[in-house]
Nucleic acid binder design. Structure first.
Length: 202
DNA sequence: AGCACGATGCTCT
DNA sequence: GAGCATCGTGCTT
């Protein structure tokens, strides 16, 4: 097996909307109990700066948001609804709080383990994905550019711009306009990455 | 197939 | 004390 190569920090130190779209088709990797699990990222959302009232950073630098103010390429993992963990990648320059929420993936390595962790259910959903890969607060702040952390992202399948579906972010019911309707959610077809054979098998 | 609701605890006001 | 970048269940159509 060829050595794991994580996406470089330069990948993340760009405008968040660009990073959010380019993360589609990449492979999210996780070493859990010594076993490698991975999935292709198929949905993301951008959260950009203190002015974005849908972004946690609207409250400024707090204990929770401090990671978003740090260098790009790190994981911002937070807890919500009393039971769910969310995985984000920090973007842009250090000092500017922004991140991309990873919202859905298609399992490709360790599928049986991931599926078992999900009790047979899917991994299309931000909390479903972290549950399937065993991602929690212990990983908040880890460097995604370092494969030694057991959590990293590498190149996957190319996704052309025309295959990206753009829509408003979800779950922001009480966020004021224009932020509530910003088209900062990006999706691509889950089956587009798989071979014909793999598609037939499902 | 779609919608309403309860779970459950941390973060910020 | 209110609200939350959600999920699974159970009930209705």
């Amino acid at each position: 097996m060829k050595p794991a190569t994580s996406l470089p920090r330069d990948f993340y130190s760009r405008p968040t909307l660009q990073v959010a779209q380019q993360l589609l088709g990449t492979r999210l990797n996780r070493i859990l109990d010594g076993v490698r699990l991975a999935g292709i990222i198929i949905e993301t959302e951008a959260y950009i700066g203190e002015d974005d009232l849908g972004c946690h950073a609207k409250a400024g630098k707090t204990k929770r948001t401090v990671i978003m103010y740090g260098p790009p390429g790190h994981a911002y993992v937070y807890f919500t609804y009393g039971m769910h963990w969310m995985l984000n990648t920090v973007t842009e320059r250090e000092g500017f709080p922004a991140a991309v929420l990873i919202r859905a993936m298609e399992p490709v390595i360790g599928i049986n383990i991931i599926t078992a962790r999900r009790n047979g259910r899917d991994t299309a959903g931000p909390a479903k994905l972290t549950n399937g890969l065993g991602i929690d607060g212990c990983l908040n702040g880890v460097d995604l550019c370092d494969t030694e952390t057991g959590l990293w992202i590498e190149e996957g399948f190319p996704v052309s711009v025309k295959d990206i579906i753009t829509s408003p972010r979800v779950g922001l019911e009480n966020v004021p306009e224009p932020w509530k309707s910003k088209p900062w959610r990006f999706r691509c077809s889950p089956s587009g990455f798989l071979t014909k054979e793999e598609n037939l098998r499902r």
